[in-house]
């Protein structure tokens, strides 16, 4: 028995080794060696470096600021996606089977298109003479300069990653039986109570998955930010990219950045999950 399942797991093990362990090993190697292959902390130190003599600070002028900025945009994207996706996923999960199928298809449809194309589309929508501004013009609202702002980046991120929030939510919500909701109503729970005591706690696994699947890629994204945010500010993904393919490449610092980002994301995810645990143990309900 044991041997068999071990053999079945072998391809996965090889996959993990090739595409997870080895790349992380390489990143670690680059991050902690200098050009001569000597062990060094310089690359990591570089991330926190700033020059006080030029009036620079840790929070504004080092790589740290870019990391924080990316985490902030990722956070905004995740929250907005959750707010949009939650009611949407719930109403899909309560619809008839055929409507469910259609809606899920519609949610997935944009994912089948290259995300660069989609981002370009958003760019033209938001541009000065784009559809959005033309539409607003009909109501006499002056043309808004959305493009090349943080707002544009967040709109783009939400647009690109929303399906990754909807689908995990939908897949747990569709399992919440009508009968459990009816039982709660029967026991005196009004709409709000049913939501707080049954629907929300039962959808927590979906929320956590959705958060992970949106937060991680939006924090580390690149291209989207350059396309929509202009050259004003770079997200950390852009910086890392430039460290490998840019005009002044520095593999060591790029790897150190990637490593720090990974650790930060892991910490964020761990905090989310811990918060869920501590809240669901008391009273068995879910404190809002």
């Amino acid at each position: 028995m044991k041997k068999k399942s071990g053999m079945l797991a072998a391809p996965f093990g090889i996959w993990m080794a090739l595409f997870t362990i080895v790349p992380i090993g390489i990143v670690l190697w680059f991050a902690f060696t200098d050009a001569n292959g000597q062990f060094t902390f310089d690359n990591v130190r570089e991330i926190f470096a700033f020059d006080p003599s030029k009036g620079e600070t840790l929070w504004n002028d080092s790589f740290v600021s870019t990391i924080l900025y990316s985490l902030w945009l990722g956070f905004l994207t995740t929250v907005i996606s959750l707010v949009i996706a939650y009611p949407l996923a719930f109403s899909i999960s309560r619809a008839t089977e055929r409507v469910q199928l259609t809606m899920v298809m519609l949610v997935m449809l944009p994912m089948w298109m290259n995300f660069l194309l989609r981002t370009q589309a958003i760019k033209s929508l938001l541009s000065e003479s784009g559809l959005l501004n033309q539409f607003l013009g009909l109501f006499g609202v002056g043309s808004l300069e959305i493009l090349n702002t943080d707002v544009a980046i967040v709109i783009g991120l939400v647009y690109d990653f929303l399906p990754f929030m909807i689908l995990p939510l939908y897949s747990v919500m569709v399992k919440i039986g009508k009968s459990e909701i009816e039982a709660a109503q029967d026991l005196g729970a009004n709409v709000f109570s049913v939501f707080r005591r049954v629907v929300l706690p039962l959808s927590v696994p979906g929320i956590l998955n959705g958060i992970t699947m949106v937060f991680v890629p939006s924090v580390s994204t690149f291209v989207i930010s350059t396309l929509l945010g202009g050259s004003k500010r770079m997200m950390i993904g852009d910086v890392i990219e430039s460290m490998f393919v840019g005009e002044a490449p520095n593999r060591g610092v790029g790897s150190a950045l990637a490593l720090v980002l990974m650790v930060l994301i892991l910490i964020c995810m761990a905090v989310t999950r811990l918060a869920d645990k501590s809240e669901s143990t008391e009273e068995g309900g879910f404190a809002l």
Partner: peptide, 10 residues
């Protein structure tokens, strides 16, 4: 209820 409808998370 005929099919109990207990709350699985509790």
């Amino acid at each position: 209820f005929q099919r109990y409808a207990l709350f699985p998370h509790l």
